[in-house]
């Protein structure tokens, strides 16, 4: 803890800011929910939310938007974390939405379910009348996110209007909204990927094993290493081989790429990141490469 010089480290300052934001939501909203994918950002967010209310229990549930294309290790991790913290888990299922006909599965070898998450997410928000939805997005991830507010207003269609955002000054957050509208809240806005990993290291935040180097059957597509899974069909010339890899994000298993790495613990990952010259999305998310403005378009429609 800080000494008598009254200085905080950058991680302590970021943690304090995130806890302030999380408590502000718990105080001002009736039905918050925390999006929990099992990825490292949501793992850190959950860790912070648990800390914010200790020794009491975190006063809201978590929600997983399940693409159905999961790494089994991630689902196992999700369920374990939820049980440990004594929380309620809401699952919004893309498969259910496909079965109900509210979304249509993409076709072709590059089909992914990432975009299909929007409808079940918004439906679940409506059904459970969630008025604040915590997301783990960081502003350093992507250009459109660099301008997103910490309290980001969504209209009754769940849409984000980047040109009409509420000014956000000091640490005075304005969460006022009408029934049917909601606020997306991003407590990790000011964190970078390196901050996340440093925090994981200092706090010992548990993560799913796929973040650490392991041997996996993978194939190369568009310059990325994709995992073998029941949902992908190999194209001509693509071949499965064993490689030592780790994942930098977890998402739809069909379009989340692995990187070759021997980093088997957090320290090794931090050392690797410190010299990495490719952003995590650019390296490992096929869906973000679609166009320069890919993320902005999806966010407008209600994406995370």
């Amino acid at each position: 803890m800080p000494s008598s010089t009254y200085e905080l480290t950058h991680l302590q300052a970021l943690e304090a800011e995130a806890i302030h934001i999380i408590r502000e939501v718990a105080a001002e909203f009736e039905r918050p929910v925390l999006l929990f994918s099992g990825g490292k950002d949501s793992a850190v967010m959950l860790h912070l939310a648990v800390k914010a209310f200790a020794p009491a229990r975190m006063p809201f549930p978590v929600m997983h938007v399940d693409t159905g294309h999961n790494f089994p290790e991630v689902i196992e991790y999700r369920d374990r974390r939820v049980a440990e913290a004594g929380l309620r888990l809401v699952v919004a299922s893309v498969q259910d939405a496909i079965d109900a006909g509210t979304v249509v599965e993409e076709t072709g070898p590059r089909a992914s379910r990432n975009r299909l998450q929007i409808v079940p997410l918004l439906d679940a928000i409506g059904e459970h009348r969630f008025d604040a939805v915590f997301g783990g997005a960081r502003r350093d991830e992507e250009k459109a996110r660099a301008k997103e507010r910490v309290f980001s207003f969504r209209d009754e269609f769940g849409q984000w209007d980047p040109k009409n955002q509420r000014p956000e000054l000091w640490s005075l957050y304005n969460g006022r909204h009408r029934r049917g509208e909601h606020i997306r809240v991003f407590p990790l806005s000011n964190w970078t990927e390196l901050d996340i990993w440093q925090y994981v290291a200092t706090e010992g935040v548990p993560l799913p094993p796929i973040y650490f180097a392991h041997t996996r059957r993978v194939f190369e597509r568009d310059g990325m290493l994709l995992a073998e899974s029941p949902w992908v069909t190999l194209l001509d010339g693509e071949e499965i081989e064993d490689r030592t890899v780790r994942f930098r994000t977890v998402g739809d298993a069909t379009c989340t790429g692995a990187v070759e790495s021997r980093a088997s613990d957090v320290e090794a990952i931090i050392a690797e990141i410190a010299v990495t010259r490719i952003t995590e999305r650019g390296a490992t998310r096929a869906d973000d490469r679609i166009s320069e403005a890919g993320m902005e378009d999806r966010k407008r429609e209600g994406y995370f």
């Binding site: 502003r139 301008k147 000011n190």
Partner: peptide, 8 residues
């Protein structure tokens, strides 16, 4: 708008 950037 205001855009936030990070470096260390």
């Amino acid at each position: 708008d205001v855009a936030y950037r990070y470096f260390a």
